[in-house]
């Protein structure tokens, strides 16, 4: 699967073909180049995006393969690279390295029911999984997707989520942590665990849970799911760390001396993540 490039530190170029505002702090960038179209990747993997002269940033892949190129969603965290990316325009050039990391083992999940838990921008890597499953719908059982953000204005890809809500073969639940009186809504209000607490299917062992969000949320989501009969090895999470090389050399993403998030992850089971001290920090 991994084709060794001659020099793994050198990116290939891609052109920004479209920019979409996702919410007040996030944009999605459509990228395209002949090399990019050859790129084969799987849900859960990430790429390194280079802004030449500014820096490089690791970004989870937000989409499944399509012919016109490729889409990444990026939140402006105020850092060198993401803030510069948000000033870039259609036609500008960026560099890409990847795909990197281990994906979600979607083939192993065949025949299972799937629960997707998307906390905040953790939705973006999971979005690739959801689209993959919809494209291969007959391979999987029941589907439930749970989305949680801080307030209603922070939802991204709203049209897409709403199109999933209208599907008969899939259930979608949304929640916001809190909302002020003016812009509140008629769906659930409360932490994401308020939805997972109520998730009590008859045969929990038939389910696989794919979860992405801030690591601190994994602890609470894990607890909530454990109570309802799910064990840690059914729960798959995607971890985040500072990354530089992305190829297991620079040691930035090493978790307590034993696992590289870039090479051994970013996808781990919650059990694996708990076994690494500090893994969920």
């Amino acid at each position: 699967m991994r084709k060794p490039r001659e020099n793994p530190y050198i990116p290939f170029d891609a052109t920004i073909t479209k920019i979409v505002d996702l919410n007040e702090e996030s944009k999605s960038f459509h990228l395209d180049s002949s090399e990019l179209r050859k790129m084969i990747y799987q849900p859960g993997q990430f790429i390194q995006v280079t802004v030449y002269g500014v820096g490089e940033v690791a970004i989870g892949i937000t989409d499944t393969i399509y012919d016109e190129g490729f889409e990444v969603a990026i939140r402006n965290t105020g850092g060198r690279v993401t803030s510069y990316l948000h000033t870039m325009k259609v036609g500008d050039i960026v560099g890409i390295r990847g795909p990197l990391g281990k994906p979600f083992p979607m083939d192993d999940f065949k025949g299972k029911n799937l629960l997707f838990i998307c906390a905040g921008i953790g939705f973006w890597p999971i979005r690739a999984c959801i689209k993959h499953v919809i494209n291969h719908r007959e391979d999987y059982g029941k589907l439930l997707a749970i989305f949680g953000v801080r307030n209603p204005s922070l939802f991204t890809y709203t049209d897409e989520i709403e199109s999933w809500m209208s599907r008969e073969d899939m259930k979608v639940q949304r929640t916001v942590d809190s909302c002020s009186d003016e812009d509140c809504w008629d769906e659930n209000v409360g932490l994401i665990t308020s939805l997972t607490d109520d998730f009590k299917p008859q045969n929990p062992e038939d389910w696989i849970i794919l979860c992405c969000g801030p690591p601190v949320a994994f602890k609470f989501i894990g607890e909530s799911l454990n109570k309802n009969g799910f064990n840690d090895d059914q729960i798959w999470v995607s971890l985040e760390r500072k990354m530089k090389c992305g190829i297991g050399k620079c040691n930035h993403c090493l978790i307590h001396g034993t696992r590289y998030v870039c090479m051994d992850g970013p996808v781990f089971t919650l059990g694996e993540a708990r076994d690494m001290p500090g893994g969920l920090d």
């Binding site: 002269g53 500014v54 820096g55 060198r80 510069y84 000033t87």
Partner: peptide
């Protein structure tokens, strides 16, 4: 280097 980076519109490393 700092001046060049500011001119290029980015923060100096």
């Amino acid at each position: 280097a700092a001046i060049l980076h500011l001119l290029a519109g980015t923060q100096p490393p």
